[in-house]
Design a protein around this nucleic acid. Structure first.
Lengths: 305, 305
DNA sequence: ATACGTGATGAAAAATATGCAGCACGTTGC
DNA sequence: GCAACGTGCTGCATATTTTTCATCACGTAT
């Protein structure tokens, strides 16, 4: 797409904050890129970048323009996939911003299946926290966001919401192991391995405990679920997980020497895992179809939303 | 707008139903136009026009594309008018770093007026002391700084300087009330409510008193002007204010049971309220225009600088 | 058949974009 | 305090792309 190479260049400059760096990334000379920027600015009659000592920065007009550019780039991509669809080939590139929850089991399984069915579809999966996901959607770095307990933001348009009852995870040798359900109070005497405070699950737990006048004091804290689970084996530490992040069959959990027990609903109500997009955006065909598949899988696995 | 000339050409072809006719209308050769069409088709991997004996006709893919092209052309036009609007000050975001002085009366009034006139202009006002303002300018967190007795710093480029004669503020029932002017020595016998030492006005007073071998011992000290004024009502405490921080009409000051008296120039010379920006920076249009308005208001209200 | 219109193509000409070397200006690190 | 670095920008020579001109091949209409 020759005619929008300049737009891509300018987008790169806006992201890099420097013409030379952007030029590097786009594999051209800074001179050429600089001239494109100057030409565009002359066309518009306004500076789109403020020149600051160590680079450039979007001006007010630039902010306006870059928003348009990103919408435009995403739109042309949508057209291209539509045209590809027309030719009978399902192809496309899907950019997903996901919290930890979906990264362990859901996405790996799903992507493998999907790519087996549609080999021409490529994926890009970025792990992020609840706040960053919105930003990634907003600047078109991501098509789809998968977040647990999403920050309610006007730009986030939720397409799927699946209830997720928090579980306690412990070693199979733990004295709590094997219970059908567990009260939160039973957990608080054991050392806890918790996600970092900006995490959705952690936030829910914090709220509940705080309401009862307590405070969660984790023995281990990390933004990596896998790591947390690996800390449970040889002691009586407890961790918390969402169903979505656990193997779909109990057997493979047992193989790892772990046990998951749902927390009593009276203590902690279910939170919601949301799949969403940037409000008002028309997604590329590939991404839209993928969301359909995702909705299907989630509903058959976790019941209707 | 160089980058979308191809889109315009293709639109023209779709409308004319013939490459040669469209070329005529667009004042180029049919060859050139033909080549642009072929290039675009190669980019997309699909024919966007069916060739029929007496011209061309949109293919299915072409219908899809032309819809996008027309949306784009209209969209870019919108952006251009928005940017034009921007040059006319009707839109933008202005970040102001201000000391206490301008926060009480000047900025609230001014912003209300300005936003009434230009509703699409948004503001961000950060209160800060004399030292922080420079930092906010330097890292582009603020476009404009409004500071009384600014720290002389190379990065601060002053655009407006307005002389401000310090006033004494007291209860209307105070024995000094009603004087036309006041000597500093008359004040020192009363309890004083003063700003904190890093404040510009306080600094001026400190310097004068110190030069005469004295020291200011405030009864009440705060970084909040309003609070200081509220301490005057029921006793004989004195406070100090700048004209900029007082209601523009004397009546509303009297309504509050307060009275303001300028300090004799022989004791305390006028200090300067400065409006400035980061030296060497080209401000966003909106900010630059707002400074013009600000200069106007300040000059008509406090005389020429 | 002839005349006209269509889109497509090759080679030359014109216009445009790119790369290189270097300038001026600020910041950073020693 | 000074050198090294990084930034955007510019003049000039070079590539590359685009446009033009002169055609061709095909289909229609007269």
């Amino acid at each position: 797409m020759r005619h929008l190479i300049t737009l891509k260049y300018i987008d790169a400059v806006a992201r890099a904050g420097s013409i030379r760096k952007a030029a590097d990334k786009m594999s051209i000379t800074s001179t050429a890129l600089n001239r494109r920027v100057l030409a565009m600015e002359e066309d518009l009659g306004v500076s789109i970048f403020e020149r600051i000592p160590n680079g450039v920065r979007l001006s007010t007009a630039g902010e306006l323009l870059i928003k348009h550019i990103r919408a435009q780039l995403s739109d042309i991509e949508r057209i291209q996939t539509q045209i590809a669809d027309l030719k009978g080939v399902r192809r496309g590139h899907i950019k997903i911003a996901s919290g930890q929850a979906a990264m362990t089991e859901l996405l790996p399984e799903l992507l493998t299946d999907y790519r087996h069915q549609y080999p021409a579809v490529t994926f890009e999966v970025m792990v992020c926290n609840r706040h960053d996901s919105e930003k990634l959607l907003a600047d078109y770095s991501a098509d789809i966001a998968i977040v647990f307990e999403t920050v309610k933001h006007v730009h986030f348009h939720s397409l799927i919401d699946i209830p997720q009852q928090p579980h306690v995870v412990c070693s199979a040798a733990h004295e709590l192991s094997g219970l059908d359900t567990i009260r939160l109070s039973q957990c608080l005497d054991f050392p806890l391995a918790l996600p970092t405070p900006n995490n959705g699950l952690r936030l829910m737990l914090d709220r509940v405990v705080h309401k009862n006048g307590g405070i969660l004091s984790p023995s281990i804290q990390s933004d990596n679920y896998d790591f947390l689970n690996r800390c449970l084996c040889d002691n009586n530490t407890l961790s918390f997980q969402l169903p979505i992040a656990m193997p779909s069959d109990r057997a493979s959990l047992q193989d790892k020497g772990l046990c998951a027990i749902p927390i009593d609903r009276r203590d902690v109500p279910a939170g919601y895992l949301s799949v969403g997009q940037l409000r008002g955006r028309t997604l590329p065909v590939a991404a839209a179809r993928f969301i359909d598949t995702l909705a299907n899988v989630l509903e058959t696995r976790f019941g209707s939303a």
